[in-house]
Design a protein around this nucleic acid. Structure first.
Lengths: 160, 160
DNA sequence: CCATAGTTTGCAAGGATATGCAGAAAGTTG
DNA sequence: CAACTTTCTGCATATCCTTGCAAACTATGG
């Protein structure tokens, strides 16, 4: 039955291990539902599931899990890319990290930092082109700053 | 040049109007970049963009926009589906709406309500199987309650 | 300027997903 | 129960996306 199958579909999606519709077909068959990929495609549309990148392959996620991608690989890459593109300088000052960005991009970069969900980041405050990042200790701040500098340098090369 | 093209790609993605890689190829060509769809595919992987449902078709979004799907069509459908599945009863009491859910699903349903980003919803508090939804007025509460009851009824039919 | 190594791209093939259509199933009405 | 309407599904196919591979391009060191 349709409703029965959908319950199992949601369960499968919830495990976060379905990376293709074929995977889902297999899982559903294992649960006793004889279905084809075409039906799965339609079911997925109905529940609003979408396939997003997770590292190098994909995962199907439900809409309410879309916002929970904090700290994921995707968001960490997003931070790296954002730093490459918009950060001009990164320094540490005691337990703070100060990031200088292209004018007007302070908030955007700070958001990327927040979304990355790094343990070392306690909080951020963004101005127009400057961000203060609070960390637990000067040690942490130094580590973060040097890591982010590396990300940021690559862009400087290209400017030449 | 690669970096130049990527800047334009990000701009295109930001408009939220690219629903296929072919669209993006066209847009890039219009901006003076001779590219093929294969290159676009690789560029998209690099910036971490993913294709998500938007109503009946798709949109390519950047990672940091994934969380901003509040209030979208996707989230509204998600709420409808969630109510169908987990809500047992919906009533209004003055300017509040009270939703009774399957045991343990209070928070999950409340989250779906929040994500839908409805103007009429001022705030929610969730218990194990009960949710209080604050609205601006008894009028709003009544409207919401009846709308959600309709969603919820469909499931009741199937229980028979 | 050449040789070499690394990077980027197009092409073509293959994989994954969406969909028109027609038939099956389920539900409705008289 | 027959006739009809509506919903669901599989099949076959179209569309869309990814990827291996080889060629074109860049960068670097002689």
């Amino acid at each position: 039955m349709r409703s029965d199958r959908r319950r199992d579909l949601l369960r499968i999606l919830h495990t976060g291990k379905a990376s293709s519709q074929k995977d889902i077909v297999d899982a559903l068959r294992a649960a006793g539902h004889e279905v084809t990929q075409a039906t799965v495609s339609r079911d997925l549309r109905e529940v609003g599931a979408t396939k997003i990148r997770s590292g190098d392959d994909f995962v199907y996620l439900l809409p309410d899990e879309l916002g929970r991608t904090h700290g994921s690989d995707l968001m960490i890459r997003n931070l790296e890319r954002t730093l490459e593109e918009f950060s001009l300088d990164v320094r540490s000052a005691h337990s703070l990290v100060i990031v200088l960005t292209a004018p007007g991009h302070g908030s955007a970069v700070a958001r990327a930092i927040d979304l990355a969900g790094l343990d070392d980041v306690v909080g951020t405050v963004a101005g127009d082109d400057t961000i203060f990042v609070a960390t637990p200790s000067p040690d942490h701040a130094a580590r973060l700053a040097s890591s982010w500098s590396r990300d940021q340098e690559r862009d400087q090369e290209e400017e030449k």
